[in-house]
Design a binder for these strands. Structure first.
Lengths: 205, 205
DNA sequence: GTCTATAGCAGGATAGAC
DNA sequence: GTCTATCCTGCTATAGAC
């Protein structure tokens, strides 16, 4: 069973990096947590930096799945449906996904190491937050084509929606460890309010 | 000139922490950059952690000044003025202030060390981002009292405004080192769009 | 109070037995 | 391929001269 060791090491290192950060995690800790020797870690990954790169970029696959989910749920909206309920449900899922403690920890990790690993941070951004925003822009573009919403610039619309939903909770969550996940009630209230403002239902003038 | 040394050390350490992070900065580097011996650093600050705490919480004073500026500019709006131009100008200043490379670096630093210094991260949040959001909510509450805007919940309105303005650029900026400050044109376009959505001028339905 | 020198230790990475 | 043992560097923090 020599093939699975790579996986075991990655899992152990991921957990330690997310909890303690890159620098505070030693290769010895990683080896111990994976129940292998340091030498095994080095023979598989070369050095600590390569292990870090592989982990961060590997985890980004989760975002791809979410983007696909999001795309399909916006593509399914027919002309007979109302958009508001669809957007409210989507906002709930989006907020819950991003406020997941593991996701928050990964964001903190990547941001904190952005000076040391600029290319990792940029790649993570493209594959995760930006990937979801692009899917959202795409979905809004289609809704606009069908005439279900009015949108000048789908990309700006996606930004507006995303940060109306995520802005405050995410900003708060980045600075608060351990992360306190919002309750379903809070998620619902924030999502509903965001959709209302996004659609311009309530003018403020 | 023994009194100024504390200041010199703080300045040197601030620059190094912001550029390299907490762990990657050694006390020896700090001493060298401040042109003093390590011993002097230790006699003034006790240890590296205390120095870090003092620096992060000290820098937060900038946010207080911005919050005051923001409060006064919203308090000055008379009933004869239109709010939109005031908000557009305010959004420009807000975005430019937050996208300052030093501010972004401080945010990255604090977020990256949030697991090791949770109380520092929480205190920073309260004194800086949350302080400004509170001032904004206050200002919107007054505008609503005078009848210049319609607002259910001033706090939610402040969040909406802030993240419509800052959301995307800030999210992007956290992951991109070296930070590329947005141009005046980009700032203007983002600010104007944010105000339009905030005020609900253009319904999307 | 400030410096030079150093203790004491932990980290990343490797050598060599099996 | 894997482990144990080890090298070397660099770190935080302190001791002791001045």
């Amino acid at each position: 069973m020599t093939a699975g060791k790579r996986e075991v090491i990655v899992r152990a290192a991921t957990e330690l990096f997310l909890r303690q950060g890159y620098q505070a995690t030693s290769t010895e800790q990683i080896a111990a947590a994976a129940a292998v020797s340091k030498q095994t870690v080095y023979s598989r990954f070369g050095d600590k930096e390569s292990l870090f790169r592989e982990i961060v970029l590997g985890v980004a696959a989760t975002a791809e799945a979410f983007a696909a989910d999001l795309t399909s749920s916006l593509a399914d909206v027919s002309e007979k449906q109302e958009v508001a309920p669809v957007l409210r449900a989507l906002a709930r899922r989006y907020l819950a996904a991003v406020m997941d403690p593991q996701v928050l920890a990964l964001r903190r990790l990547v941001i904190g190491e952005a000076a040391r690993f600029p290319e990792v941070a940029a790649a993570y951004y493209d594959r995760s937050p930006a990937r979801v925003l692009a899917a959202l822009a795409d979905g809004f573009g289609r809704l606009a084509d069908v005439g279900l919403i009015t949108v000048d610039d789908p990309r700006r619309a996606a930004d507006d929606f995303a940060f109306l939903v995520l802005g405050r909770p995410l900003d708060h969550g980045m600075f608060h460890v351990p992360a306190t996940a919002p309750s379903d009630a809070e998620i619902g209230a924030t999502a509903d309010h965001a959709v209302e403002v996004f659609l311009g239902c309530a003018s403020r003038m």
